[in-house]
Design a protein around this nucleic acid. Structure first.
Lengths: 345, 345
DNA sequence: TCCCGTTGAGTTACCCGTAACGTTCAGCTA
DNA sequence: TAGCTGAACGTTACGGGTAACTCAACGGGA
């Protein structure tokens, strides 16, 4: 809490009322356009509003009316990952169009940072929270239950959410990719990811992936889990590590497209042909995947739509409409041309 | 404003006080750790805080103490542009470490969206605002003056800011790039950008660029201004448009690295050698620029540091420390290898 | 002319904390 | 043992706005 930069400089309702020669209540009614006043009175009040540059104090409104605010707390792991930037953009636009505001929290993929942020943001009486991921610390869970406000868990679809959830089933998405790569004839596959990404979604994905590969008679020979962000350069040096330790791999699955692109650059630098010498698959279908010389094999997830859906569920809940507590936003495999054609194995 | 999802479910200070058998004021003192109570009392109160899951209501605190909140409004043009995502990340981390919260506003590069957002966010009594860009609508300016709170304008260094400014001089940055490219022997240069990017910074950059090129005896023959986001694909098709209409260009300067990369992909697809047939220069030194097979010629701007500096200036101002109103965060030209070597012209 | 409904506008209480001030009482001094 | 002191705790008022109620004036119908 900080001393006001320039206190007493704010115009209050009673100042407006005083200047207009009416009571606070009348001024309030006029400003809210609630009716119950004459045109003459309205003009008097609005004239003073303009003259004094009155801006309503919404804190007081929330306070007075036992309402909740129009804040929606949104926790995002990090913005270095393009995926979450898009999700956040989708959320903020949709919330904005409903007159709500995003209070951001970057959690660095840690439950403790999320917990601290939840505690703080709850103390500001938000209308609801949108949280990335479905794993939260016990204390976070307790606070959320106590606060009993709408919560949307996004990204990783939670079939038994705290309140609501929207996202995709990462296990299934990983499984589909695994089955696809096995179908392309790959049997000796590597994985490069990070310990971030709200770790659990990527981990779940990997689990589904491994299951499908194994079931198809292949093996995920080597899994690399970097302590870094899921971006280009980690993809580059991760690939280097992977191929140095296990040069026999016939395919690499990356945590996302940015990393996959880094991996492709490493391969290109080493003179490895993709997909001739090694197959490459990414995840997320980021914009970059579409302008590469070869279409990157990836998994499309509608990020912007996911964010919008989360905001929509929140708004529906707040307006009292019935909301289905879970929504699967779906994914779509992009075969691309950075892996061998299916059936040519 | 929305009815509380589950009203009256919040534990208030007086409930805690009641349960602990002390007065509100005593409970308040204990919870703030302000002193003036016995250990016995403290234990009694804290026990009830834990039992009831009390969370202080900061709205009431702000209200009672005539303080401002710990909200900092942050307006960002869009998050599709990686640059601003990084800036935002820098801001939010730094603010968070000072116990402040980011209230996000995505303005879509329009002054009206910014104005609406300012009006709304001011009504929540923020402690300060961080705005991208130095151009604001007249009404925005008026509101900001009336509110008399700390404002940091970022990105485009404003030598006579509303209050404070941190960023770089885009004209100079553009000029340096222009001089560099002319020095490499390029005389017939094209530009691909968008009408976004808080339009004015990119425009200013371009102006400096054109000036340097012209001064060096070259010409910026064709300027393309797309109505799209400054991303890969617009860079790709923008280059296509540019080279179709003006195939004689010897170099292209892009609004940012993402667009430059799209342009390089187009050239690669057309069998144009970079820099043999055409030079390519980007802007921003985004992570991707470092993993390309050829180091992209670019201009490094410390985005994360810029965000952090903005947050730091805000915090200093709020704690009453003297703050220099402007801060040039600097830039650095990355020669790269997507242009001919200097002097070999 | 009287009564009553309608409209416009004022009054009061309250939301949840905190600042400022008031009260109580244990413990010490003279 | 009266008198004083200061720690511990209580009481009151307040901030900006709104809900709910009250009140006054006015106009129309019987």
């Amino acid at each position: 809490m900080v001393e006001k930069y320039n206190k007493n400089n704010k115009v209050s309702l009673s100042q407006v009322a005083g200047a207009a020669g009416v009571s606070k209540m009348t001024a309030s009614r006029v400003i809210r356009g609630e009716g119950g006043y004459s045109e003459k009175t309205r003009d008097l009040v609005m004239q003073q509003v303009d003259r004094l540059g009155y801006l309503p104090n919404r804190l007081a409104t929330v306070f007075a009316g036992d309402k909740s605010s129009t804040f929606i707390g949104v926790s995002i792991p990090d913005l270095g990952n393009e995926v979450f930037a898009h999700v956040l953009e989708g959320i903020d636009h949709k919330l904005g169009s409903f007159g709500h505001q995003t209070v951001l929290g970057l959690t660095q993929h840690t439950e403790t940072a999320e917990e601290d942020w939840i505690r703080t943001v709850l103390s500001w009486q938000p209308a609801g929270l949108i949280l990335t991921g479905r794993f939260h610390s016990p204390r976070s869970m307790e606070m959320l239950r106590n606060a009993s406000l709408p919560v949307v868990e996004i990204w990783d679809l939670n079939s038994s959410p705290l309140d609501m959830s929207v996202g995709i089933n990462h296990f299934d998405a990983g499984f589909d990719m695994g089955r696809f790569l096995v179908g392309c004839g790959y049997r000796n596959i590597g994985y490069v990811g990070t310990s971030h990404d709200t770790a659990n979604a990527a981990t779940t994905r990997l689990a589904g992936f491994v299951k499908a590969v194994t079931a198809g008679g292949g093996a995920v020979t080597k899994q690399l889990c970097l302590h870094d962000t899921a971006a280009y350069y980690p993809g580059y040096y991760g690939t280097e590590q992977l191929l140095t330790s296990t040069p026999t791999l016939d395919c690499i699955f990356f945590q996302n497209d940015a990393m996959a692109f880094g991996g492709m650059q490493f391969c290109a630098g080493k003179g490895l042909d993709v997909p001739g010498d090694i197959g490459i698959a990414g995840w997320g279908d980021l914009p970059i995947a579409a302008v590469l010389p070869k279409r990157l094999t990836s998994m499309h997830v509608p990020h912007l739509k996911l964010g919008q859906a989360a905001a929509e569920m929140m708004m529906s809940r707040l307006s009292g409409e019935p909301v289905h507590p879970t929504r699967d936003i779906g994914f779509q495999l992009i075969p691309g041309s950075t892996v061998r054609s299916q059936g040519l194995s």
